[in-house]
Amino acid sequence: MEFLALYNYWVFAVLLLIGLYAVVAKVNLVKRLIGLSIFQGAVFLLYISMDKVEGGTAPIFQTADGAGVFSNPLPQVLILTAIVVGIATTALGLAVVVRIREEYGTVEEDVIEDMDADS
């Protein structure tokens, strides 16, 4: 089981790698934004993985005095904010892509570059 104790972090690294590859290598603008959300999703996993306490539960008190073992609330708060930031970026990015499509008639970056080079 010792081997699996860091499994979350490896998955985080691998997802980050996959997302980053899509962001850098793809030429379709929508696909790059999808890659960006995988990339950001990986970071959520990093933070949430560190909040777990063995034998703990979600940090919501069941009794008035707050007794019990609870997982760490702070990374959860940070990631709530980060998720919102992520969707805000995606929304703005998609709006830009829609306008690009209207102006250039395509969302493939290499085609757009050729059109800009001509003008």
Binding site: N8, S37, G41, F44, I48, S49, D51, K52, V53, G56, T57, A58, P59, I60, F70, S71, P75, Q76, I79, L80, I83, V84, G86, I87
Partner: peptide, 14 residues
């Protein structure tokens, strides 16, 4: 991983 609030948000948003 005990992050109920985050799970709810990720499901609604993502």
């Amino acid at each position: 991983l005990d992050a109920a609030d985050v799970a709810l948000t990720e499901a609604a948003v993502g």
